[in-house]
């Protein structure tokens, strides 16, 4: 494909969409920039420039072409989408598919919800919390209480996030409910160690990915992204901590 045949506007939209899906799914900033610039170079656009932060992307594909901005407000962790976008970019770079096909595939990826059924997610969130409780040295007799606490926390955070769209609030209330479940479990002798039950219950909410990605972004020289991801992680940790703290203080 020679340089003149490329539909530059579609190319720009295509790269921007790829970057947007990746940021919204929780990919690292340097990987997003790398993917977009790789796709651009494979089409012969050598002087593409990008500026990626977790809240927006600016992409320019040359002096004579237009520059576009996209703003991003929602970020979740969706590894399936990252893998799919990576696959599309790999195919485009190796010239297996054309730009039009890549753009169509990306639009399809953006619209589809790849998450497993919510009941299965609930089950896994609860079992993840219980398994981690055992790993952290908890008692086997606390397993049912942790399972219930993890499930309650996951239900609350999912429902409230759908209703309010305020991440801080839903995480705060989820942590509050986990604390209450743990407290009453110990009170009615269904569990022994309240600390271990709470830790197991909140583990599915803990921003482990955010913290790690923040430090990795900082190390790659993306200070803006690193600091803002770090702030997001700190807010989440603070929400969980204050939810639990309320229970500890109240009882």
């Amino acid at each position: 494909m020679s340089n003149n045949e490329i539909n530059f506007e579609m190319a720009l939209d295509c790269f921007l969409l790829a970057g947007r899906i990746m940021i919204e799914s929780g990919a690292e900033t340097y990987r997003v920039e790398d993917t977009m610039l790789r796709m651009a170079r494979s089409l012969g656009i050598e002087d593409a420039q990008s500026y990626v932060t977790p809240t927006g992307i600016i992409l320019s594909i040359g002096k004579k072409q237009i520059t576009k901005i996209t703003s991003i407000s929602n970020r979740i962790t969706d590894l399936h989408k990252i893998a799919l976008v990576n696959n599309v970019s790999r195919k485009l770079t190796n010239k297996i598919i054309t730009l039009e096909q890549a753009y169509e595939e990306l639009i399809k990826i953006q619209k589809t919800n790849y998450f497993l059924p919510i009941s299965l997610q609930l089950l896994t969130a609860a079992s993840a919390g219980s398994a981690l409780m055992i790993l952290f040295g908890g008692l086997w007799s606390d397993l049912p209480a942790t399972f219930v606490a993890g499930a309650v926390g996951f239900i609350v955070v999912t429902i409230l996030h759908d209703l309010t769209k305020v991440k801080f609030f839903s995480e705060f209330l989820a942590a509050l409910f986990i604390g209450l479940v743990a407290h009453f479990a110990v009170k009615f002798h269904l569990g022994t160690e309240i600390d271990k039950i709470i830790i197991g219950g909140v583990m599915p909410l803990v921003p482990g990915l955010l913290i790690t990605n923040a430090i990795r972004d900082l190390m790659a020289g993306h200070f803006t992204s690193g600091i803002s991801r770090g702030a997001e992680a700190f807010l989440t940790a603070f929400a969980i901590g204050s939810g639990i703290a309320l229970v500890v203080v109240a009882f």
């Binding site: 590894l79 399936h80 497993l116 299965l120 969130a125 079992s127 993840a128 398994a131 981690l132």
Partner: peptide, 14 residues
């Protein structure tokens, strides 16, 4: 169990 469950929560490819 714990990590595979987190794989499901983070929606890793099946």
């Amino acid at each position: 169990i714990a990590t595979a469950s987190f794989g499901v929560i983070f929606n890793a490819p099946i």
